[in-house]
């Protein structure tokens, strides 16, 4: 197991290098931010001075190598706009995004898996159809629409939750969760739909298996059959989809954080892209890539928990 983890971690290095090179090329192909930084009164000479001050007048390959060298030392550079280290900016923003994603994850898995199991159990009935309609809606309605509706109903009409913002967990669980519950529901819509559908499909297949029929013949209770015998054997595709779905969450967080004014990494990324704040774009994309690679590793490792035949 340890050797496998080590091999996988080493394998991330070329992946990250490729990501770094691609991100660098894509970002720098779009020009540089000197003209934006210079403002409306700038002359071409002013822009050239800013380009020089930021080092954008050096050969691209030199810029790439220097940036890569700094990254390898843990230095993601400094934002050209805020003058703050990129690591500081990521650190400022990571808690709200991680909190939002974790709450969404817990909520989505907690809702979607039982939904999928029940839909499979009651396949073909109105319950199954109702659950699948909810799933289709989750896929179809954009996050910002769900977000606005939730804010209108639960914040403006009922005054149960705030409209916007983020409160750190350190200031108490109730304010923390109050700020996150609506964004998590909005963000979780697609995720719930995805997990519920894959759970239903996988469970339908598992429930046809001989050992389920044997369990029924032995008089095992329905709940135990569904959640102990069948679900455990259906878990691998579900866990895989949960992992893949984290990419959806990262994308959806950008919109959700804007709609609910959550100061997270999604908004940081969008702001950086719109401003051409290259060091921030590169830093955030690298970090997301690394996180995604690690999540995939964790998912692979989790397979052995559900299926003892899988060994690393």
């Amino acid at each position: 197991m340890f050797a496998y983890i080590l091999r996988r971690l080493i394998a991330t290095i070329p992946v990250m290098l490729v990501v770094a090179a691609v991100v660098f090329m894509m970002v720098y192909a779009s020009g540089n931010p000197a003209a934006l930084l210079a403002g409306d009164q700038a002359t071409p000479e002013d822009i050239a001075r800013i380009e020089h001050a930021l080092g954008y007048d050096r050969p691209k390959i030199q810029q790439f190598v220097e940036w890569l060298w700094r990254v390898m030392q843990g230095d993601l550079g400094t934002s050209v706009f805020t003058n703050l280290p990129v690591t500081t900016m990521i650190a400022q923003r990571i808690e709200p995004t991680v909190s939002l994603m974790l709450v969404t994850l817990v909520l989505s898995v907690g809702v979607a898996v039982p939904m999928g199991v029940v839909a499979a159990w009651k396949a073909g009935t109105w319950i199954d159809r109702a659950i699948m309609v909810i799933a289709v809606l989750g896929f179809s309605v954009p996050v910002f629409v769900v977000g606005y509706i939730l804010a209108w109903v639960f914040a403006l009409q009922l005054d149960w939750f705030p409209v916007q913002g983020y409160t750190p967990l350190s200031e108490g669980f109730i304010p923390f969760i109050s700020n996150l519950i609506l964004p998590a529901i909005a963000l979780g819509g697609v995720y719930i739909a995805l997990i519920a559908r894959i759970t239903r499909a996988t469970m339908l297949e598992v429930l046809q298996q001989d050992y389920v029929r044997t369990a029924r013949a032995k008089g095992v209770g329905q709940r135990e059959i569904l959640f102990v015998h069948a679900l455990k054997n259906a878990a691998i595709p579900i866990v895989t989809v949960i992992g893949i779905g984290i990419a959806l969450l990262i994308g959806g967080a950008v919109v959700t954080e804007s709609v609910f004014a959550i100061p997270g990494l999604g908004r940081l990324t969008v702001d950086a892209i719109l401003r051409r704040d290259f060091p921030v774009i590169q830093g955030v994309v690298l970090m997301f890539s690394f996180v995604y690679v690690i999540i995939n590793l964790l998912i692979d490792l989790s397979y052995s928990l559900f299926d003892p035949r899988i060994r690393y």
């Binding site: 606005y148 804010a151 209108w152 914040a155 403006l156 005054d159 705030p162 409209v163 916007q164 913002g165 804007s258 709609v259 609910f260 004014a261 100061p263 908004r267 969008v270």
Partner: peptide, 16 residues
């Protein structure tokens, strides 16, 4: 900072 106008509008109406 609120990039979304609907959010800013709701926050103002809600006293946030």
């Amino acid at each position: 900072i609120m990039p979304d106008t609907a959010t800013a509008s709701a926050a103002l109406q809600n006293g946030e």
